[in-house]
Design a protein around this nucleic acid. Sequence first.
DNA 1: TGAATATATGAAAATACTTTCAGAAATTAA
DNA 2: TTAATTTCTGAAAGTATTTTCATATATTCA
Lengths: 136, 136
Amino acid sequence: MGSSTSLKKNLVISQKNQDNSTCHPPHPIETGHLEGLQKQILTVPKAQRMAEFFSLLGDSNRLRILSVLARKELCVCDLAATLDMSESAMSHQLRTLRAMRLVSYQKRGRKVFYRLQDNHVLALYQSVAEHLEEID
Amino acid sequence: MGSSTSLKKNLVISQKNQDNSTCHPPHPIETGHLEGLQKQILTVPKAQRMAEFFSLLGDSNRLRILSVLARKELCVCDLAATLDMSESAMSHQLRTLRAMRLVSYQKRGRKVFYRLQDNHVLALYQSVAEHLEEID
DNA sequence: TGAATATATGAAAATACTTTCAGAAATTAA
DNA sequence: TTAATTTCTGAAAGTATTTTCATATATTCA
């Protein structure tokens, strides 16, 4: 069982806007007051890695998969049945979760059982759940 | 200044797989042992709201915008210059951040200054930063 | 071994997201 | 008022992601 992922957007791309005239009616900005700022902000590579991680949680099917696995390890077909997804779609999603090490798996007979890799992710999404209740 | 957003994927869609034969070589699954599970998992609407939130953080430009605003409120054109994005792209991104109430803004003269709405988001992404350092 | 079951995979189709482009709207200054 | 500046907007273009479909691989059982 190999491994590969999607979520490429945040991995590689960069280097747009090579010429520094980013503003469309270009205006003479004195960037002096911005330089200090530029050194402190999230670097592009870090932002990309972080965004890749958040993107992983930015899909309701993946979140539901994680919420099921939080309670019980489960094989692919039961996951698919529980969440009303095709087994193929489930398999693709599990692959991306695997690639980011959010789940681990164990083969038993012809079934493959998936489980959460750790509880860090759960903590994270509980934190978001709270935030969402706050802003309502 | 109106408001509208993207990130539609997690908002509305559902109801795929209307027929219950989700498994491709359909197999007679006894769903009895899954019913308890289905009641406890994240509901689709909740998962969608949560995914929508994570998606918002799932873009490196948006994360960098937030990281800049964490230090200092800034107008659109300075944000654009700092992060090397076009002002139009910046404006579009700020709109989605506004729509999800992660940033607020204040108009002064012809400039519009954006700032973080609260520090909840920062806390969240610090938590992810830690996770990312762990798994390296 | 052959048939059935469970999962995985690549490619194409279906969707979704982000940026650019062209131009509108609002504000300021001359 | 006219010109310049700043931001916003809708639509199209460019890119990315997710699902489906067809098929491959692996395991079990008869």
